[in-house]
Amino acid sequence: MTGAAGPEAREQAERTWASPGASPGGPDRDRPLTPIQRLVARFGRGLVIATPYGWLLLFFLLPFIIVLKISFAEFRLGVPPYTPLVTWLEGGYLHLKLALGNYLFLLDDPLYITAYLTSLKVALVSTVIALLIGYPMAYAIARSTPPWRSVFLLLVILPFWTSFLIRVYAWIGILKNNGLINNALMALGVIDEPLPLLNTEVSLYVGIVYSYLPFMVLPLYATLEKLDVSLLEAAADLGSRPFKTFLTVTLPLSLPGIVAGSMLVFIPAVGEFVIPDLLGGADTLMIGKVLWSEFFSNRDWPVASAVAIAMLVFLVVPIVIFQHHQQQHADRTEAG
């Protein structure tokens, strides 16, 4: 085959294949566009941005502004059950009235301060326990052989897909006075009368750790799985003992997973309502439960809003850490 056949063959092919009406040898720039194509070409990018952006502005950001606004209003009987911030006075003057009373009330009543501190403490302790259980689990899964790894991972994810409420409910049957544990212990003769397990701090921690454990294990697994085993071998080769290697290589490299997992447990746990309500005792008052009863029992919307804003203030730092971490992670994967 020589090059001589080339151009001729091509010309012939062009004659055969070029569609009728196409400008000779030129691109189909004159191909007519449908109205939709024209719309997309012109506004496509804008439309894609505007839809989710608009949704979040309306249903995520605006609600917070309203909560902020109402937290400065005063409670009243009526619909809506709060006073307006801005009123038109006679003569067209605008009157803005910020009631700081709700926040002063929060500071004044030890109930709220205690609830906030208890929430932070419970969330912190639960996060640490979840980390202590979740880290070895994630490590074991990451180091297992492929078929087992998928099975273990599936087992971690599976509770995710089953009802959270029902998983919490399951513990009532286990922990209550005539529940499984107490019955078993009494049958074995270890104790004579039931241990108070339900509605204590113990049951609260059990519930939170149990519910949030998968959130801890998954990000940890994701970082540990990417960890190059040859790094550990290199450390061992250079004379580092396994535990030392763990402390100096594995642990620092899995820090992103630790941060992500801890934030995924800590932040929602602070505001948790269902678990303290079903498993926690009357004396462990958590802020989520306070907000709930302020809203549903007392019907005091302004105070509930102030409680929410105060809770957000506590959570701003961890949320920013979490977002920063998420962004870094996304940038890395998107760049790679």
Partner: peptide, 12 residues
């Protein structure tokens, strides 16, 4: 706005 709902306490 898109990452905050992942961790935002449900009561809020």
């Amino acid at each position: 706005m898109i990452t905050a709902p992942l961790v935002m306490p449900e009561v809020i």
